[in-house]
């Protein structure tokens, strides 16, 4: 697909036009906490240098609380009512490649056999404009899970900063192409050169572990000392899961709004909570934190790959940055790789 040269001011014009047409625009907040909704084009952030937001943009596709339907008891007659479809057309400006990559990964679980239209409608209505990433810290590990600061996976349009306030705008998806064609001023100047990705590779975060070895070890070693080592330190909050772009477990609960009405809600949930798997009888298949942490790692780096042929992780490092006790998942996986190497020798 084609690429174009665009300037920052053109991007601002795009945002302004979208706002005038009642599109919702999201971008990373200034404090880089989360993705916030913009009221003016001046708020949008297309910054490859910045740290990934503390909380991923997952909530724009999979909200922390989502109404599944309303129920109403009128004169003893019960009726169910669908919520309004998430109809707002949305553009996300300046997503990180490690954010964008989560969308197709999540799409697998939300669409095998049964289709979750809540997720799908949001994806359908959203254009993801990502920007090549030039940030990296000790928690980043996108290159260990098959991605890179230039991965276009999950993006509709992709920006590569070239010189000050100038970008290459790559069209990545058909949806992105259809979208950008509506804004002719964005596709005036075609980029005809080739972008030398090889040149950039030296600055990529270095690979911390070999995914294949990690997966192999996990497949063979269910019981191991490593889970106790991490499990005794892990405090069992769900910060890692909730800031994660790919964690998708949820709970379904009913809430009453009055005597005769209420709603059923889908809420984020996490395998790190003891209650997650606890049966009504009191029996809990994952009764301690070491088992729950093992589940988290296996789900991401073993089970999901087996099941959906995707790694349930984009290497964004949010879980590590946010962990109250600084558990570094990449370090855990490095240790696992060492165990696997030792097993081979």
């Amino acid at each position: 697909m084609k690429s174009f040269i665009v300037t920052r001011s053109q991007i601002n014009s795009l945002a302004a036009e979208l706002l005038s047409k009642n599109w919702s625009i999201f971008t990373q907040s200034e404090d880089r906490k989360r993705f916030k909704q913009c009221e003016s084009e001046s708020e949008i952030s297309v910054d490859g240098n910045g740290k990934p937001s503390d909380v991923s943009f997952k909530e724009l596709f999979f909200p922390k609380s989502e109404t599944l339907f309303y129920f109403n008891r009128d004169n003893e007659e019960l009726t169910l009512l669908d919520p309004a479809e998430p109809g707002t057309k949305t553009v996300i400006f300046g997503a990180k490649p490690c954010d964008a990559a989560s969308v197709p990964v999540l799409s697998k679980v939300f669409n095998w056999d049964y289709n979750d239209e809540f997720f799908n409608k949001r994806v359908e209505n959203t254009i993801v404009i990502s920007i090549a990433c030039s940030y990296s810290d000790e928690s980043c590990f996108c290159t260990s899970v098959g991605l890179s600061p230039f991965s276009e996976i999950g993006s509709d349009l992709f920006l590569i900063p070239t010189e000050k306030d100038s970008f290459i705008l790559k069209i990545v998806s058909e949806k992105g192409e259809k979208f950008i064609n509506e804004f002719p001023f964005m596709i005036q100047k075609e980029f005809e050169g080739t972008f030398d990705l090889e040149n950039q590779k030296a600055s990529f975060p270095k690979e911390k572990f070999d995914f294949a070895s990690v997966k192999e070890w996990l497949g063979k070693n269910f019981k191991d000392e490593i889970w106790n080592e991490v499990g005794e330190l892990c405090l069992g909050c769900a910060q890692c899961a909730y800031v994660c772009p790919t964690c998708h477990c949820f709970d379904i609960v009913d809430e009453n709004c009055g005597v005769s009405c209420g709603r059923r809600v889908k809420n984020w949930d996490s395998c790190q909570f003891g209650l997650f798997t606890k049966h009504a009888s009191g029996h809990n298949p994952r009764e301690d934190q070491s088992r729950r942490y093992r589940q988290r790692v296996n789900h991401k780096f073993n089970y999901y790959k087996q099941r959906f042929d995707e790694i349930l992780c984009t290497g964004c490092g949010r879980c590590t940055r946010g962990c109250p006790v600084s558990i570094d998942i990449a370090q855990v996986l490095e240790k696992i790789q060492c165990k696997q190497s030792a097993a081979i020798v």
Binding site: V109, F110, W112, D113, Y114, D116, H248, C249, F250, D251, I252, D269, C271, F276, T277, K278, H279, P285, Q295, N298, H299, N302, Y303, Y304, Q306, R307
Partner: peptide
């Protein structure tokens, strides 16, 4: 009889390894 919520292979509660008990 694992604990389940969605029954649709989405919510992740009934997983045992890569198996979805509900599916």
């Amino acid at each position: 009889e694992n604990r389940m919520k969605c029954g649709l292979g989405k919510c992740g509660r009934c997983n045992i390894g890569s198996v979805y008990v509900c599916k």
